[in-house]
Design a protein around this nucleic acid. Structure first.
Length: 583
RNA sequence: GCCCUCAUAGUUCAAUGGAUAGAACACCAGCCUUCUAAGCUGGUUAUGUAGGUUCGAUUCCUACUGAGGGCACCA
C-alpha cells in the first residue's frame, strides 16, 4: 500500500507511484490526494497498481464506480510515461505500466545491487539486541527451540537488511533446580560414566538423566526436596556439587553448541544465568528498600495493579533467586554492554504474561528504556495434538529430526543421481533437510500454533523449502549451459508473454517485502513471497525456452532468470536457508 | 472463576474493512526423443453459531459454542 508521501525502496515502483499521483493531480485537489492509497490489484491482468475510489466517494458524495469511470476518462496519459494504460473496473481505477521500461529498470537495478539486493537503510544503524533460544542446560534442543532459533536468526537477518545493527544474544539457563535433577540422577545411577565412553552427545547424555530423575521421582517423591536442597548447596558454593555441575554443564553446552553449528545458528554474545543471578538479587533488595516492592509471606513481591497485571514474586521467602530475578539484571547488563535502541526477547507465547510483568517491573524500577523492550511472542509447536513442552513427555528431538530428514533427502538425491559422490551427497542432503525444516517453520506467522506431524508435515514437494532451492538449481543449470556472460543491456521491446511480465513485476516487490517483514518481525511474509516468485518462475520455465530462444530474447531471458535467482538466493539467505547449484 | 490467543476446503496454512476468499497436501485427468518431472496444466471441496457497526465484514464489536495457553514463591 502506497500513500503520496510513502518512501518506496524500489526505484521503478517509486517512479511509477509518483507518476500516478502526478496524473491524479490533474483532476484532484491536493487534500484529496493526501488521503489516497495505491494498492496492488489481486492479479496482474487487472493492472499493476490500483486506486480504490471509496475514499473519494465519501468526499465527492458520488458512487465509487462513477468516480472510477470519470477519472479514467479525464486523466491524460503522457506519451513517454511509465504508466501506459488506465482502466476503470468497478470501484477501482487500475494502472498498467510500460513493460519495457519496467523490465529495463528493475533488472538493471537487481543486477547492479548484487548481494545487497533488496536492502534498505530504514533502520538508520539503530542497534537492536535480539535474545533468542536461551536453552536450559539439562537436556538437548527440541523442535520448539528450533522454531525459536530459526525465527530469531531470520528476524535478525531481515532487520539487518533493513539497516539495523543487530546483536544476537543467548542466555544460557545453567542455574536452577532443573539442573540439580539431572545431577541427582547421575550421582545415583551414573557410575561416573562419561558421554564419550558410550558415544553419546553430551546434551543427550545429560538429558537422559533428567528423564531418569522424573521416573525415579514417581517412586520416591522425596527426591524433589533433595533437588531443592542441592540447589541451596549450589548457591552456597559447595565444591563437590559445583565440580559436578561444571562437568555436566559442559557436556550439555558442547552438545547444544554442536547442534547450533549444524543448523547454522550463531550468536554474538552469550550470557550465563549462573553469573548474573546474584546481581539480580541486589536490584530486588534495593528496590524493596526504596519501597518499589513489598513483602508478602516473607517473599518480595512486585505489586502490578497499576498495570492491570497480577502480582509477581521476585525473591522466594527463603531468599533464593527466581528466573525473573536474573532477567531483571540482564536487561540492565545488555543496556550497559551495548547501549541498544531496542531489546527484543524471542520467547514462546506461554510467557506473554510473564514478559508483560517483567517489562512493568522495569518501568517501576525506573529503567528509562522500558518502552524499548519488546517481546516477540511465538506459538507453540504441537505434535500429534500433544504439546511440545519439555515438562511433558512428547518432544521432537532436533538432532534426531535433522538426521531423519537428512536420510530422506539423500534417498531422494540418490534416486535422481546414482553416481553422486559421498561428500556432495552429504552436503546436498543437509542443505535440503534444513531447507525443508526451516521453511516449514518460517512459512507460518510467528504467533500461529504449528501442528507438527512428523510423518505428514515435512515434504520436499509443493510449498516447501526444497521447491525454492530447486528453482534456484534449475536457473543455475540453464545459466551454466548458456556459457555466456549475463548482459544487463537488453532490449525488452518484445516483452509480450504474460509470465515474463509477471515475473518482472514480482521482482519489483522484493524490497517492499523485506521492509514489511522487518516491520512486522515476520519472516513468513518473505517466505510466502519467495514461493510466489518460484511458482511464477516454474510457470515461465515451462512456457518460455531460454537457451533455444532467438538471440535478443535469449539475452533478455537470461538476465531475467539470473535476477530471479539472485532474489531467491538473497531471500532464502534471509530465512537462513542455503541454495544449491545442483539438485 | 478471571485473563490472553485462536476457530476458513478432508488436512495444514493465506487473505492492511474492499475486486472472483488464495495456496499446499490428499483425490481425479493430462504433460518427460524439448533448458533438471523435487516440475507444469486442468478439475472437485471452505469463512463455528446468533446478533450488531458499515455503502461493504473472514477481518471490527457483543454473546454463545469449541480448542490451546496463562493466573505470586516453575520457566
Amino acid at each position: 500500500m502506497f500513500k503520496i508521501d510513502s518512501k518506496i525502496e524500489n526505484k521503478f515502483t517509486s517512479l511509477a507511484i509518483k507518476e500516478i499521483f502526478r496524473l491524479l493531480k490533474q483532476i484532484l485537489s491536493s487534500k484529496e490526494l493526501k488521503n489516497l492509497e495505491i494498492v496492488y490489484p489481486p492479479n496482474q491482468e487487472m493492472g499493476n497498481f490500483s486506486l480504490p475510489c471509496f475514499n473519494l466517494a465519501k468526499t465527492q458524495k458520488k458512487s465509487p464506480l462513477k468516480i472510477a469511470k470519470e477519472l479514467s476518462k479525464k486523466i491524460r496519459l503522457k506519451k513517454k510515461g511509465i504508466i501506459c494504460e488506465i482502466k476503470n473496473q468497478g470501484p477501482y481505477l487500475n494502472f498498467f505500466v510500460n513493460s519495457e521500461k519496467m523490465a529495463k529498470s528493475i533488472l538493471k537495478d537487481i543486477f547492479g545491487k548484487k548481494e545487497k539486493v533488496g536492502e534498505n537503510k530504514s533502520g538508520r544503524n539503530k542497534k537492536i539486541i535480539i535474545e533468542y533460544v536461551s536453552p536450559n542446560t539439562n537436556k538437548p534442543l527440541h523442535l520448539g527451540h528450533g522454531r525459536n532459533a530459526f525465527l530469531g536468526w531470520s528476524v535478525s537477518k531481515i532487520l539487518k537488511a533493513n539497516g539495523y545493527k543487530i546483536i544476537k544474544a543467548c542466555l544460557i539457563n545453567d542455574r536452577g533446580v532443573h539442573i540439580c535433577k539431572s545431577m541427582l540422577a547421575y550421582l545415583e545411577k551414573g557410575k561416573n560414566l562419561l558421554p564419550e565412553e558410550i558415544g553419546i552427545k553430551g546434551d543427550h547424555f545429560v538429558g537422559d538423566y533428567y528423564t531418569m530423575f522424573e521416573d525415579m521421582r514417581k517412586q520416591n517423591p522425596d527426591l524433589e526436596k533433595k533437588a531443592r536442597g542441592m540447589l541451596i548447596k549450589w548457591e552456597k558454593g559447595d565444591k563437590k556439587i559445583l565440580d559436578l555441575w561444571k562437568k555436566m554443564n559442559n557436556w550439555t553446552l558442547n552438545g547444544i553448541k554442536e547442534t547450533f553449528d549444524k543448523i547454522g545458528i550463531k550468536f554474538d554474545k552469550f550470557y550465563f544465568e549462573s553469573q548474573i543471578y546474584k546481581q539480580g538479587k541486589d536490584i530486588i533488595l534495593k528496590g524493596f528498600k526504596n519501597k518499589q516492592f513489598v513483602k508478602k509471606d516473607k517473599a518480595i513481591v512486585a505489586d502490578l495493579k497499576k498495570y492491570n497485571l497480577p502480582d509477581k514474586v521476585l525473591l522466594r521467602s527463603d531468599g533464593t533467586a527466581l528466573y525473573i530475578t536474573q532477567d531483571i539484571y540482564l536487561i540492565y547488563l545488555k543496556q550497559k554492554d551495548f547501549n541498544p535502541d531496542k531489546i527484543i526477547h524471542i520467547i514462546g507465547s506461554e510467557q506473554d504474561l510473564a514478559q508483560k510483568q517483567l517489562f512493568a517491573i522495569m518501568d517501576i524500577l525506573g529503567f528509562k528504556q522500558s518502552k524499548n523492550l519488546y517481546h516477540l511472542s511465538y506459538g507453540m509447536v504441537n505434535v500429534h495434538g500433544g504439546k511440545l513442552k519439555s515438562r511433558e513427555g512428547t518432544r521432537v528431538d532436533l538432532d534426531v529430526l535433522i538426521k531423519d530428514l537428512g536420510k530422506m533427502a539423500s534417498l531422494e538425491i540418490r534416486a535422481r543421481d546414482e553416481k553422486i559422490n559421498e561428500v556432495e551427497l552429504e552436503k546436498r542432503s543437509q542443505a535440503i533437510a534444513l531447507g525443508a525444516l526451516k521453511y516449514y517453520i518460517l512459512q507460518y506467522d510467528p504467533k500461529t500454533i504449528v501442528n507438527f506431524n512428523p510423518k505428514k508435515s515435512l515434504a520436499f514437494e509443493g510449498h516447501t523449502g526444497p521447491y525454492l532451492q530447486y528453482s534456484y538449481a534449475r536457473i543455475s543449470g540453464i545459466i551454466k549451459k548458456s556459457k555466456t556472460e549475463i548482459n544487463k543491456n537488453v532490449d525488452f521491446s518484445k516483452l509480450r508473454i504474460k509470465q515474463e511480465k509477471e515475473l518482472i513485476f514480482l521482482l519489483s516487490k522484493f524490497s517492499e517485502i523485506i521492509k514489511d517483514s522487518g516491520k512486522n518481525y515476520d519472516p513468513s511474509i518473505l517466505a510466502k513471497y519467495l514461493y510466489d516468485l518460484a511458482k511464477s518462475f516454474h510457470s515461465f520455465y515451462h512456457i518460455c525456452p531460454v537457451l533455444k530462444a532467438k538471440k535478443e530474447i535469449k539475452k533478455g531471458r537470461l538476465l531475467l532468470i539470473y535476477c530471479v535467482a539472485q532474489i531467491i538466493k538473497k531471500g532464502l539467505d534471509l530465512l537462513g536457508i542455503e541454495v544449491l547449484e545442483e539438485m
